[in-house]
């Protein structure tokens, strides 16, 4: 009986503390998604970008409103794509969660081409990923831009 209780306590401890910071598996998942964005955004592959989001996702870009659902998020990305994007980078800084939900915070930059001139825009972001039938989907995506890099 004692052994059963000890085993049960250990199992409970294991499962209740399974939400971890920096779990290599979770880091690998968000890193892979970041690489997808880095590949797709400069190519303006809107359909594939939208597939990264869940059906009910919420997108909160800088200088705009919250967009909910894929159709609305697509409109927001179309606005972004009025610029030519020479480069796009995302760097996950903090990854936390479990197999169902991943909480990610990171920094990144876009290099925009405006009237032939390149302009670097730094941003930081908070993403929440949810495991769905066909893999992890982005459910909340919010970012803000900053000019003072490294501040």
């Amino acid at each position: 009986m004692k052994q059963f209780v000890v085993l049960l306590a250990l199992l409970c401890l294991y499962f209740t503390t399974n939400a971890q910071t920096g779990d290599p598996k979770l880091v690998a998942i968000v890193q892979q998604q970041a690489e997808r964005f880095e590949d797709l955004v400069p190519k303006k592959k809107l359909d594939e970008i939208i597939e990264i989001y869940s059906e009910d996702a919420i997108y909160g870009p800088e200088n705009n409103v919250f967009y909910q659902g894929r159709a609305e998020i697509e409109k927001a990305w179309k606005q972004t794509f009025t610029y030519e994007i020479a480069d796009f980078n995302m760097d996950p800084v903090s990854v936390y969660g479990d197999k169902n939900t991943i909480y990610e915070a990171g920094i990144g930059y876009s290099v925009l081409k405006i009237q032939g001139q390149e302009q670097k825009v730094n941003f930081k972001y908070v993403n929440v990923w949810r495991k769905e039938k066909d893999g992890y989907k982005l459910v909340i995506d919010t970012y803000n831009v900053y000019l003072d890099k490294g501040a």
Binding site: G60, N63, Y103, A105, V126, T142, N144, V145
Partner: peptide
């Protein structure tokens, strides 16, 4: 706009885990 994540603590209370703001 804000996006906040509140995380449950061992005593059952909640604290801010993540917070981001940007212009609306």
């Amino acid at each position: 706009k804000y996006q906040n994540t509140y995380r449950r603590q061992t005593d059952g209370s909640y604290l801010m885990h993540r917070a981001i703001y940007n212009i609306n």
